[in-house]
């Protein structure tokens, strides 16, 4: 049976209106032609380095971008456009965010109350994460790192959301704790939720996710199956291949150059300046996303 697509983002662009002088009219484009989709029962890992637009995607879906952000493109939830009116109804109920850190909890409110006003729901969520009932009465500053992570997960679980967007849930955690956190997301997905897992740690994510969307400079370069990462020849985009080679267990080989900054993007393919297969053709226009071997790729030479 075909699994239903819960979230589908296509051709998303996010531009920040800038007020400072000297900025080109139209502002700063931080995300361009970004596409990603998550189906029920699966984990989509969104991987990419800092500044590749991962968190902005999460914020765009949840409608919590700053006021000076202009969003274009399509965001669909359960096959229908996610309008702001619909989003207002859905967020916190069907769509839940697992935030990055303790900064996302009110420092002066007991965590139980922050997870939900419904005590019994909190109790159930806490049981699931093996959090003691007494934790409900603690303030965020009294939690250990591991407890904090579980509390943040509980804020999403308590809603019974169909779509869970986890924004960098593992940095700063020990390997064991991080693995356990990932296991929790796997369980949620196995229970039918669609999980979008935003992460730096592609190595860890690969062990738990179904598919990987690779972001570079604010755009999606490739969407691959997690299993594709077992062999470099299965990967499609030169950047993904470079990423694979950079992994410690593979060649551990860096790719020269750095990701370009928003506002200083090259014409055409954003990866062209660092790509070893670049031709003049690449700099003419941004490559369209196309389907290739059960994945998506934005490269004219990918095969």
């Amino acid at each position: 049976m075909e699994k239903k697509t819960v979230l589908n983002v296509s051709n998303l662009s996010v531009t920040f209106r800038m007020y400072s002088k000297g900025m080109r009219k139209g502002g700063l484009k931080v995300i361009s032609n970004l596409s990603a989709s998550v189906r029920e029962g699966e984990i989509l890992a969104v991987a990419g380095s800092s500044g590749s637009g991962k968190s902005l995607l999460a914020h765009a879906v949840l409608g919590i971008l700053p006021r000076n952000a202009i969003v274009t493109g399509e965001i669909e939830y359960m096959g229908e456009a996610l309008t702001s009116a619909r989003l207002t109804k859905l967020r916190g109920r069907e769509i839940a965010l697992v935030p990055q850190s303790v900064e996302y909890l009110d420092p002066l409110m007991k965590v139980g109350k922050q997870v939900s006003d419904d005590k019994y729901a909190v109790k159930r969520a806490f049981e699931r994460y093996k959090l003691d009932e007494s934790v409900m009465k603690l303030f965020p500053f009294q939690l250990s790192g591991g407890m904090m992570r579980r509390v943040l997960c509980a804020t999403a679980v308590v809603t019974g959301a169909k779509l869970i967007i986890a924004d960098e849930p593992t940095p700063g955690m020990s390997e064991e704790l991080a693995a356990r956190a990932m296991k929790h997301f796997r369980d949620l997905a196995d229970a039918g939720a669609a999980v979008m897992l935003i992460t730096h740690d592609i190595d860890l994510a690969l062990r738990y996710c179904d598919r990987v969307a690779v972001f570079y400079a604010g755009t999606t370069v490739e969407t691959a199956l997690a299993s594709d990462f077992g062999n470099i020849d299965n990967l499609r985009h030169p950047y993904t291949k470079a990423l694979w080679r950079a992994m410690p267990q593979n060649d551990f080989a860096p790719t020269p150059g750095t990701q370009p900054y928003a506002g200083n993007l090259p014409d055409g393919c954003l990866f062209a300046p660092r790509c070893d297969r670049v031709t003049e053709e690449c700099t003419r226009a941004a490559p369209e996303s196309r389907t290739l071997r059960n994945g998506e790729v934005s490269c004219i030479y990918a095969d």
């Binding site: 967020r91 916190g92 839940a96 990055q100 900064e103 909890l105 809603t159």
Partner: peptide, 13 residues
């Protein structure tokens, strides 16, 4: 500007 206000918005509070 804090994370917890953002998170509260994201949760539709």
């Amino acid at each position: 500007e804090s994370g917890y206000i953002l998170f509260a918005k994201a949760r539709g509070e």
